[in-house]
C-alpha cells in the first residue's frame, strides 16, 4: 500500500530531524559553554587556585619552615616565569625526568621536609578538601602565560621518556582494546556529546596542551594534566594511572613535544 504523499514527506521530515538531533544537541552544549565563558570575560575561577598557590609558594611551611621560593623548576631556584613551558624535563639532582606536579612533590619533600603522605593526601581536590598540588600547579603554570612550549629532548632520558609516552599513546589495551590514539587521532569525531580532541597533529596538540590546567565548570574544580591523563585512563578502562609515574610523565612529555612552539594560555576554562 502506498502512503499518501503528505505523510511520506512528514515521515522523512521527522527522520531528518531525528538524524540531525545529536548534532544540534552538540552545538547547543558547546554554545552554552561558549556563552558561559563570555559571561566571565577575563575572569576565571582558576584564579582562586592561583591565589592560594601563590600563598603556598611564598609561605614558610613544613618541618624546615621554608617557602618554595628556592624550588628549582628547571630554570634555576625560584624561577617560575616560563618554567612550565619547558616541562617535563631532566633534573640532575633527582636523576629523573619530571613534570611540574612531580617536581613540586620533590621540592615539598626535600626543601620543606614535608612527608610524602601529607603531600599526596589530597591529589585532586573536592570542595572543602583542597589540593595544595592543584593550587601550586595553577600558580606556577599561570607564570608561563605567553611563553612558547619548548621541549628540545636534549637528554637521553628525555628521549626515552618521549618514546615511552609515544608507545603508550598507541598501545591498545583494556576491555575495549582502545589506545589513546583510538579516541584522539582523528578530527571531527565525538563521544557522547564531547568533541574528541585530535592530539596527533601539531595544531591539535597545541590547542589541547596550552589550555591545561583548566577550571572544569562541571566539577567546579581546577584540574591539572595529571588529572586529565588519569581520567582518560579511566575512560579507556585501564588500571588507575599512578600520579607522577614514568607513564604519566612520558605521556605528558609526548604531548608537550607534539605541542612544541604553542603559546601557553592556561589555566583556562573547560566544560
Amino acid at each position: 500500500m502506498a502512503l499518501p504523499a503528505r505523510s511520506t514527506s512528514s515521515l522523512i521530515a521527522s527522520l531528518l530531524l531525528a538524524l540531525s538531533l545529536p548534532l544540534a544537541a552538540e552545538q547547543t552544549s558547546e554554545e552554552a559553554i561558549a556563552e558561559y565563558h563570555a559571561m566571565f570575560g577575563d575572569e576565571n575561577p582558576a584564579e582562586l587556585w592561583q591565589l592560594r598557590g601563590e600563598e603556598l609558594w611564598k609561605t614558610p611551611r613544613g618541618p624546615r619552615e621554608v617557602s618554595l621560593e628556592a624550588c628549582d623548576l628547571g630554570k634555576g631556584p625560584g624561577v617560575i616565569t616560563g618554567a612550565y613551558a619547558e616541562l617535563p624535563r631532566w633534573f640532575e639532582d633527582t636523576g629523573k625526568v619530571q613534570d611540574l606536579e612531580s617536581r613540586l612533590v620533590t621540592c615539598m619533600t626535600t626543601l620543606q621536609g614535608l612527608p610524602e603522605s601529607e603531600v599526596f593526601a589530597i591529589k585532586f581536590g573536592d570542595g572543602e578538601r583542597k589540593s595544595d598540588l592543584e593550587a601550586l600547579t595553577a600558580y606556577v603554570v599561570a607564570a608561563s602565560r605567553g611563553s612558547r612550549i619548548s621541549i628540545p629532548l636534549d637528554h637521553p632520558a628525555e628521549k626515552a621518556a618521549y618514546a615511552l609516552g609515544e608507545s603508550v599513546f598507541f598501545y591498545r589495551a583494556g576491555p575495549h582494546d582502545f589506545a589513546c590514539a583510538t579516541c584522539h587521532s582523528e578530527s571531527g569525531k565525538r563521544i557522547r556529546l564531547q568533541t574528541l580532541p585530535q592530539l596527533t597533529t601539531k595544531e591539535g596538540a597545541q590547542a589541547a596542551y596550552t589550555r591545561w590546567p583548566a577550571y572544569r565548570v562541571s566539577q567546579g574544580e581546577l584540574r591539572t594534566m595529571e588529572w586529565r591523563l588519569q581520567d582518560c585512563f579511566r575512560q579507556q578502562r585501564l588500571p588507575q594511572l599512578k600520579y607522577g609515574s614514568d607513564v604519566a610523565i612520558g605521556l605528558t612529555l609526548y604531548l608537550a613535544r607534539k605541542a612544541e612552539g604553542g603559546e601557553m594560555v592556561a589555566p583556562s576554562i573547560k566544560r
Binding site: 570575560g41 575572569e43 575561577p45 584564579e47 582562586l48 591565589l51 592560594r52 570542595g127 572543602e128 567546579g220
Partner: peptide, 27 residues
C-alpha cells in the same frame, strides 16, 4: 575561607565590580 578575587574599575560614572568567591555552595 579563602580570599575573594575582586576587581573594581571606574567605567565613566560607574564602578564596575567583578568578584570571584571560593565556596562549595552545597545545596
Amino acid at each position: 575561607p579563602d580570599p575573594m578575587r575582586i576587581r573594581a574599575v571606574m567605567m565613566g560614572e560607574v564602578v564596575d565590580v567583578k568578584i570571584l568567591m571560593s565556596h562549595v555552595m552545597e545545596t
